[in-house]
Computed example of a mutant assay.
Amino acid sequence: MVAGTVGHEILSPISPSRLWKAMVKDSHNLMPKLMPEIISSIVVLEGDGGVGTIRQSNFTDAIKDFSYWKDRIDEIDDNNRLFKYSVIEGGLLGKKVKSTTFTLEFKDGINGGSICKFHGEFETVEGNLPKEEETEEMMGNMEGMFKAVEGYLLENPNAYV
């Protein structure tokens, strides 16, 4: 087993508060609408959206390696716009990774925009780290989701204000 990390930072013209509301607080409603070709639904199975909440993300056939994952909210800090969650079932658990945790953070950027930081930590099942192409694909998928939300917010300036 090998531990590893991936990270990415994106600059956005959207304010941190709008991104926080859309990507964290209402992702279960917004993401399936914005990306129906990938995400069929996100269901809150347990909890009220705070720490300990369990959600299940269901994916379409566009995702070849798995059909769903369940995650648990480990930390949610509205004041600092910090969100941390762990995948607890499904996804690549047991196939390629033993554990996976993601952190999203939204900081003030220039001209009212944001600096959005994505960080992932994982332990592999086998003794090999993912290939560079695999981590780039993972970060590309995260950025694609981010850009879908960003595009929606740019087109809908009154959403999530």
Score class of each variant (00 low, 15 high):
Lys64Arg: 15
Asn141His: 08
Ile110Lys: 13
Ile39Glu: 07
Arg72Thr: 12
Ile39Val: 13
Val43Arg: 12
Asp108Tyr: 08
Ser40Tyr: 11
Leu45Met: 13
Glu126Met: 09
Tyr85Ile: 03
Leu93Ile: 15
Thr124Lys: 11
Arg18Pro: 02
Asp74Pro: 01
Gly151Phe: 01
Met35Asp: 11
Tyr85Leu: 09
Asp71Ile: 04
Met145Thr: 10
Thr5Phe: 10
Gly151Val: 04
Lys21Pro: 05
Ala159Ile: 05
Gly52Gln: 07
Lys25Gln: 12
Met1Glu: 11
Gly90Met: 03
Ser27Leu: 11
Phe146Gly: 05
Ile39Pro: 00
Gly50Pro: 03
Pro32Val: 11
Tyr152Ser: 01
Tyr160Asn: 03
Phe118Ile: 15
Thr100Asn: 09
Arg81Tyr: 13
Asp74Lys: 03
Ala62Pro: 04
Ser40Gln: 08
Asn79Ile: 04
Asp74Ala: 07
Val44Ser: 05
Arg18Asp: 02
Gly50Trp: 00
Asn29Trp: 09
Glu132Arg: 12
Pro36Glu: 01
Thr100Lys: 13
Glu75Gln: 13
Lys98Thr: 14
Gly94His: 06
Phe66Ile: 03
Ser99Ala: 10
Asn58Leu: 03
His28Gln: 09
Ser41Cys: 08
Lys70Tyr: 07
Gly50Lys: 01
Ala22Leu: 10
His28Thr: 14
Val125Glu: 15
Asp108Met: 10
Val149Gln: 02
Leu93Val: 14
Thr53Glu: 14
Phe102Arg: 10
Lys21Asn: 12
Glu37Cys: 00
Ile110Ala: 07
Leu93Ala: 07
Asp78Thr: 01
Leu92Phe: 09
Leu82Ile: 10
Gly49Arg: 02
Arg18Thr: 02
Ile10Met: 15
Leu154Arg: 06
Pro16Phe: 03
